[in-house]
Simulated scan of single mutants.
Amino acid sequence: MDSQQSKNTQKFSKMGDFQQFEPDFYQSEYYIDDQEQPAYSYEDAAHQDIDYDAPSPSVYAPAMGLGHPDPPYTGHVFQPAKDSGTDAYTSTDTFEDEPPLLEELGINFDHIWQKTLTVLNPFKPADGSIMHETDLTGPILFCVALGATLLMAGKIHFGYVYGISAMGCLGLYSLLSLMSLVCISYGCVASVLGYCLLPMVGLSTFAIFFSLQGILGTLFALLVIGWCSLSASKIFISTLEMEGQQLLVAYPCALLYGVFALLTVF
């Protein structure tokens, strides 16, 4: 009986200690090991005055010992100075200083006129610097003119004109590459042979109004063949520095222009 009462007494004493500790537990402000840490509540934040004019703390603080931080960006872009002596800055800045469109395309009417005069006058010395250009504007015009005049005479030979021209240029290019010590391009050969086709255009124009199937027509055709071959050989020897070989170059040229003459006469 006494032991039972002593157990009940110990139980009530423990409950009293717990009740005494409970209000202390809820009323405390997180005091742990005598270290004061005041609790933060939203009511305190609402009553706190905020100074908006104060500068905000820096987000990034470089670590010490890692060198100096980069300088702040000032908004200036680095622009290298132009060197007037280089080719990179020789382009024009205004539309007035730009070259004409025909010159950019490689069409020079002055050179076309000079080459035409050289062909029309077989005895005039040829300028090798001008004739060495691969200008195909004049040759294409003369080929179209030859086909158009043949068409007016009732002969549809556009395919023959283009085919014979291409094969003739290729054959003469191979021959001149073997005979000359100076390098020559296929475009240069085609340009010279095309310009020298101008007298043949005159022959085909004459054939529109008169028949060439006679003695006079044959003589006139032979004269035009000699004219074309002489002009072409003169230009080739001036361009390729083949002095004393004009007759050797004129013979294959005469064969080529003879085929055009046959198309015109018959």
Rank of each mutant, 00 (worst) to 15 (best):
Y160T: 03
Y160R: 08
V161I: 15
Y162D: 04
Y162C: 02
G163V: 00
G163I: 00
S165E: 13
S165R: 14
S165H: 13
A166I: 09
M167T: 12
L170S: 06
G171R: 11
G171A: 13
G171M: 09
L172K: 07
L172M: 14
Y173M: 06
Y173I: 11
S174N: 10
L175Y: 13
L178G: 01
M179F: 03
M179T: 00
S180Q: 10
L181W: 01
V182K: 15
V182Q: 14
V182F: 02
V182A: 11
C183W: 00
C183L: 07
I184C: 03
S185V: 11
S185M: 04
Y186T: 10
Y186M: 09
Y186S: 02
V189G: 00
A190N: 01
A190H: 03
S191T: 13
S191Q: 10
V192A: 05
G194H: 08
G194A: 09
G194L: 07
Y195S: 08
Y195E: 12
C196A: 15
C196W: 05
L197F: 13
L198S: 13
L198D: 04
L198E: 09
L198I: 15
P199N: 12
M200R: 07
M200E: 06
V201P: 04
G202D: 11
G202V: 12
G202M: 06
G202F: 02
L203N: 06
T205H: 03
T205I: 07
T205G: 06
T205Q: 08
F206E: 14
F206S: 08
A207I: 04
A207R: 11
A207V: 05
F209Q: 06
F209M: 04
F209N: 03
F210C: 07
S211L: 02
S211K: 10
L212V: 09
Q213I: 01
Q213M: 08
Q213E: 15
Q213A: 08
G214V: 00
I215Q: 11
L216P: 01
L216D: 11
L216M: 10
G217A: 11
L219T: 00
L219I: 03
F220W: 09
F220M: 13
A221G: 10
L222A: 09
L222R: 05
L222T: 05
L222S: 05
L223A: 13
L223C: 11
V224T: 15
V224E: 07
V224N: 08
I225R: 01
I225W: 01
G226I: 07
C228S: 15
C228K: 09
L230A: 13
L230T: 13
S231P: 00
A232G: 12
A232S: 15
A232W: 10
S233V: 02
K234M: 04
I235S: 05
F236K: 00
F236D: 01
I237W: 01
I237A: 03
I237R: 06
I237Q: 04
S238Y: 05
T239R: 05
T239S: 05
L240S: 01
L240A: 03
L240H: 02
L240T: 01
E241P: 00
E241G: 01
E241K: 14
M242L: 15
E243K: 12
Q245A: 07
L248K: 08
